[in-house]
Structure formats: structure tokens, C-alpha cells
């Protein structure tokens, strides 16, 4: 449990985001956001409540909401499209999540652990859901009919008549140069740093991967020069 000053700090982080004033104009408690919120239909979660907490600067309950509630949001942004004040409750949640990570909140670490595979794929390959991730033992709930033709995954992918899609461990083929450019973006925008904060093991794996790819790219560039 954080002390009041820490909670105030967290709130200051949230409201200093440049989007904050765009996404929170006021609130009359009309309930349109919660009405259209998919999460509110199943969780005791209410975008109206999140907006109210921020609007009334209730730092203790904001902190409280960041432990659990903000992760219930499905980020569909229906709330933003509907709000008569043009607030974006979903956008505010996104800011709160960023801050939860920047501050290394335990809640964020807990929530995101099972999401690590997607992050790993994204950070290393530049695309997210690859065919080899959809293994039956990861998705028993998707049923036995997950695929209607039996066969080796590699062959099935080869049977997709678009060359760039015939991959197994990425969604599409990404050029080495593109990957390396993306790593530069991660480094320069602090994404790798927040990953390190969230999950050190995952970060180590990713770092090794990136280094390897960079070396490959250097080698490739040298080869080009030699030619």
C-alpha cells in the first residue's frame, strides 16, 4: 500500500499526460459510457466511476482502481464515441495503465504475466499472433474444430497463396531491416525500459533476441558492401 504522497505522485503522472485534458472535459454522471461498456456488462466496473474519480481527484481511490479495475476495460472505445462531454474514459484508462507500468505497480505485473507471449512476439517480430502460437493445448476452449483441415502447419501455411504469409513463427514475413528499425523505436521511446520494469525475465529473452538480430543485420550489411 502506497502512502498518500506516492498516490498523489501517481495521480500527477496521470494528469500530466498531454492527452489528459483532451480526454477529460467534465462529467455529469449521465452513465452513457457505462451503458455501452462491454466490461460493465460482466464486471463490477464502470467507466463513469473512473472518470468521476479522476474528475474529483480522489487520489486514494484512483490508486485503488489501478490495482484492479483499470485492467477490466476492453479498450473498445465505445465510451469515447458516445460521451456527450467528449471525454474518453477508455483513453484515460490507457493513460492509467501506462502510469501503472511506469511506476512498476505489482498489479500491472500480475495482470500482464499471461500476456507476455503476445508482448514477446510483438517486440521481437513486429507482429503479434503467429500461427505457431495457436496450439491446441494453449486454446482447448476454442474446441476441436480450431482448424478444419488436418495437416502439417508448415504445409498448410505454404498453401496460402500469398508469399509473405507463408510463415509459421510470424504472422507475416518481416524484413531484417524493418525489425532493426523497430528495435530502435523501442529503445528510443522507452518501451524496452518499461518491459524491464515489468518482467525482467521476459526482458532478458527479448534483449538477447534483439542483439542477435542486430548482429545478423550488421553481417548482412557487410555482405552487401562486399558484393
Amino acid at each position: 500500500m502506497a502512502n498518500y504522497a506516492e498516490m498523489q505522485q501517481i495521480f500527477d503522472d496521470i494528469r500530466s499526460d498531454f492527452r489528459y485534458d483532451h480526454e477529460l472535459n467534465g462529467c455529469l454522471n449521465c452513465g452513457v459510457c457505462t451503458a455501452t461498456c462491454p466490461s460493465a456488462h460482466f464486471y463490477d466496473y464502470s467507466p463513469r466511476e473512473i472518470v468521476q474519480l479522476l474528475w474529483t481527484e480522489n487520489v486514494e481511490q484512483i490508486y485503488d482502481a489501478m490495482q484492479e479495475k483499470i485492467w477490466a476495460c476492453a479498450q473498445c472505445m465505445t465510451c469515447a464515441a458516445r460521451c456527450p462531454f467528449k471525454n474518453s474514459p477508455g483513453g484515460l484508462v490507457a493513460i492509467m495503465r501506462e502510469v501503472a507500468i511506469a511506476r512498476g505497480l505489482q498489479s500491472a505485473k500480475d495482470v500482464l504475466r499471461p500476456f507476455g507471449r503476445v508482448m514477446l512476439k510483438l517486440i521481437t517480430t513486429g507482429n503479434q499472433l503467429s500461427p505457431d502460437m495457436i496450439q491446441p493445448d494453449h486454446f482447448p476452449d476454442w474446441g476441436p474444430n480450431i482448424q478444419k483441415v488436418e495437416g502439417d502447419l508448415k504445409v498448410l501455411r505454404k498453401a496460402i497463396p500469398v508469399k509473405t504469409l507463408q510463415t509459421v513463427d510470424t504472422a507475416w514475413e518481416v524484413s531484417l531491416k524493418t525489425s532493426v528499425e523497430m528495435y530502435t523505436i523501442w529503445e528510443m521511446t522507452g518501451v524496452l525500459k518499461s518491459l524491464e520494469m515489468m518482467d525482467e525475465n521476459l526482458f532478458d529473452v527479448i534483449e538477447d533476441f534483439i542483439d542477435e538480430k542486430k548482429e545478423d543485420y550488421e553481417d548482412w550489411l557487410e555482405e552487401q558492401d562486399e558484393d
Binding site: 490507457a94 495503465r97 510483438l122 507482429n127 509473405t164 524484413s175 524493418t178 523505436i185 521511446t189
Partner: peptide
């Protein structure tokens, strides 16, 4: 249809909050 493209990375951002406006913009 080129290999020189990445995901917009917004799935990850909306899912986890990892990433930021700068990275999305870049």
C-alpha cells in the same frame, strides 16, 4: 504487399499499456 512493415503495435498497447504515444507514432 511488402515485408517491410510492422504491426501498428496498438494491440499490445491497448492490452498492456506497454508502449506510449511516441512509440505508436514512430
Amino acid at each position: 504487399d511488402e515485408t517491410d512493415q510492422t504491426s501498428c503495435t496498438a494491440w499490445n498497447y491497448h492490452g498492456s499499456g506497454i508502449g506510449n504515444v511516441e512509440s505508436l507514432a514512430a
